[in-house]
Amino acid sequence: MNPHRRSPFVLVMTVLVFLFLYVPIFVLVLYSFNASRTNVTFEGFITAFGPLKTQGSLVVQSPCGPFHWFCDLTRNQEVMTAARNTLTIAFVSTIVSTIIGTMAAIALQRHDFKIKPFAQLSLYIPIVIPEIVMGIGILTLFSQVFTWVNTTFNLPPDARLTLGMGTVIVSHIAFSVPFVTLVVQARLQGFDKAYEEAAMDLGANELVTFWRVTLPMLLPGVLSGALLAFTLSLDDFVITFFTTGPGSTTLPIYVYGLLRRIITPQVNALSTVWILIVLIAVFVIQRMENRESI
């Protein structure tokens, strides 16, 4: 029997699993074009362009035609604010956690210090501890510290420390740093010390060596660490849920809030846009990375 032969079982399973992965997404996208406002069943596409015209719960005609719900979305102030919050949090936490994580990875690789084994082990904490435990841990920490600060310094109500963008960003940095560190570490493991020695041999001091040789050569690792941090931040629900406050609602939190109330195709439109943006971003980054590592 030829072991290279592909078994029909594997093939059938593969097709089924891919269907399982994609049918929900397909339905999600399809319903974003739903004519039905209640969004319970799919009532067909909105085909006519023109001023908004409804018939019961059906949208018959819209200035945007089938893209009615997408246009509707742009007029939704809450969504726009949430989108801005989400991106702000993702960008800031990615930049900070990439810098900290890269430095941590280099420190762990190059230097020996007393708590190194402990530090290395602690990188696995966000993997082996359920997110909800981390979420309430961070929440408890913030609320205790904030209460202490607010009462000790007797801050006026408008200057009191509260949960908000700041706390969300800090907690996103906290859970991203270990992932960035692990990714950069993986890249560092294959890094020949001779490159840095060569740079120093040619007259570059430690700082110049880092900027001109170490960092450029680590860049693919740093970039994929940053990409991971960015997607983790965008995707995060649980930790944001516990550390968010008024004015720092992110898209996942907003959607979660909607799901417990009424669901219009607007949510589907939002999801479709989300998937599209993430796909484009990932595609662009992968192209960049491929060029980087020819």
Binding site: F18, P24, V40, I263, S271, W274, I275, V278, V282
Partner: peptide, 24 residues
Amino acid sequence: LVLVPLWTNFVIRVYAWMMLLRTQ
């Protein structure tokens, strides 16, 4: 293709199943 669903949001993925599983 395996990663694409992962890049859609966690909450959105649950929502997709709500659409599939509802009585109607």
